[in-house]
Design a protein around this nucleic acid. Structure first.
Lengths: 106, 106
DNA sequence: ATAATATGCAACTATTAGGTTGCATATTGA
DNA sequence: TCAATATGCAACCTAATAGTTGCATATTAT
């Protein structure tokens, strides 16, 4: 799964709410997860599917219900991507700072 | 700017490539940034605008060109959001582990 | 058996996104 | 001045997204 797909999956308030709820580490049925999201059950189901397709959550069908739980690997990948961007940026700023200090010495 | 909007802005390969290029800390003109992205200049321009609207980059017009540079604050916000999700998840796992160990002691 | 429950699937609509092309305009260099 | 350059703006197309409603189906509880 490419990292842009993970970001894309996180780029929606309903999906972000779902992820936030799942971050408590427990698993929810699709039905419970779909409550109070501000959209219909079927609307919520689509967002849950989108998150599953981005490998951010996992669905475990059991009997007539399906348990949903978080799968943090993709999230970590996304966080590391941002951290890398930030690190490059910081290194560049440090380099610029050193250049300024050196020229100030002469 | 809400964090889902930041994620949304990062959820596209062209925009992600733009951010990656800018992460070297230098500034590029819109024209230079638009090269070799696989889309037309106008297509690239739209993505640049999307990133600017999400407060991920800044545009500085000067004469006939416009300099583009990264603005890492929104990125940090997004990274911290993910880090928080991961932390909650980890804490829950730790708690579960302790529970198992305790019950194993009895 | 039957009713309630949890979910899935399909069709449909409206909006947004990503992309294009064409043309206008302001700035700069020769 | 005049040509080249950098960019902006607008119209347009297509595909994807977010959402809906209605109905089907499998599972579970009484």
């Amino acid at each position: 799964m490419s990292v842009d797909a993970v970001f894309k999956a996180l780029g929606d308030p309903v999906r972000l709410e779902i992820v936030t709820r799942l971050s408590d580490g427990s698993s929810y049925t699709i039905g419970k997860l779909s409550e109070n999201l501000g959209v219909s059950r079927q609307g919520a189901r689509k967002q849950i599917q989108a998150l599953a397709s981005a490998d951010i959550i996992e669905l475990h069908p059991a009997g007539r219900e399906t348990q949903v739980c978080l799968k943090p690997d993709s999230l970590q990948q996304a966080r590391l991507f941002i951290a890398d961007i930030e690190q490059r940026w910081d290194q560049r700023l440090q380099a610029l700072k050193r250049l300024l200090e050196d020229s100030g010495d002469t």
